[in-house]
Simulated assay, not measured.
Amino acid sequence: MHLKESVELLKRRGYRITPQRIVILKVLENNRTHPTAEDIFLMARKSYPAISIASVYNVLEILEKEGIVKSLTGMDGIKHYDPDTSFHAHFFCRNCRKFFDFEGDFSELSEYFERDFFDYKIESVKVIITGLCPECRNAL
């Protein structure tokens, strides 16, 4: 979701549009690095030095609740944030602790859940594959 769409969604849902929310949305817009809250705090602080880490966590909680971002937790137990809320898989490198998007057609997986779990109300599916990314694998 882009900045303008995110701001409009938050307004419609009754949230005030604060400078902290704007700067965090700007940091996340088109961000494909799956940053942690700490990463987002450090990037946001460059353009808004008065921002606090508590504000970052509070805004991220709202953005996740409203479906603007989704969170991913790696093997390290740390939450990472992804502004791409479309259904896609992720690869988590156990060495460098980075997430990477796995592009592809996962429609069969979606169809599997719809077909075999029809009695359940599935709200979220997260596919996280773990291993070594090419850079870490080549460094061995």
Rank of each mutant, 00 (worst) to 15 (best):
M1H: 02
H2S: 12
S6I: 02
E8M: 00
E8T: 13
L9V: 09
L9T: 04
K11T: 05
R13F: 05
R13Y: 01
G14H: 02
G14Q: 07
G14K: 01
Y15P: 09
T18E: 08
Q20S: 12
Q20W: 00
I22L: 03
I22W: 00
I24D: 01
I24N: 00
K26E: 15
V27D: 02
N30G: 09
T33L: 14
T33F: 11
P35H: 07
A37G: 15
E38K: 09
L42E: 07
A44R: 02
A44Q: 08
R45K: 15
K46Q: 15
S47E: 15
I53V: 08
I53T: 11
I53F: 14
I53D: 00
N58Y: 07
E61I: 03
E61L: 11
E61R: 12
I62G: 02
I62N: 10
E64K: 10
G67Y: 02
I68G: 03
V69G: 06
S71T: 06
S71L: 05
S71W: 10
S71E: 05
T73S: 02
M75V: 05
I78D: 00
I78Q: 08
Y81D: 04
P83I: 12
F87Q: 00
F87V: 04
F91S: 12
F91Q: 13
F92N: 02
F92Q: 06
C93P: 08
C93Y: 00
R94Q: 14
K98A: 06
K98H: 13
F100L: 14
F100G: 00
D101I: 11
F102S: 13
E103H: 14
G104I: 11
G104Y: 11
D105W: 12
F106M: 14
S107V: 13
E108V: 15
E108L: 12
L109C: 10
S110R: 12
S110F: 03
Y112T: 07
R115I: 06
F117I: 10
F118I: 10
K121W: 10
S124D: 12
S124C: 09
V127C: 04
V127K: 08
V127G: 05
V127S: 01
I128R: 01
I129T: 09
G131V: 12
G131D: 05
C133K: 07
P134R: 11
P134H: 09
P134T: 08
C136Q: 05
C136D: 08
C136P: 00
C136N: 04
C136K: 00
L140K: 12
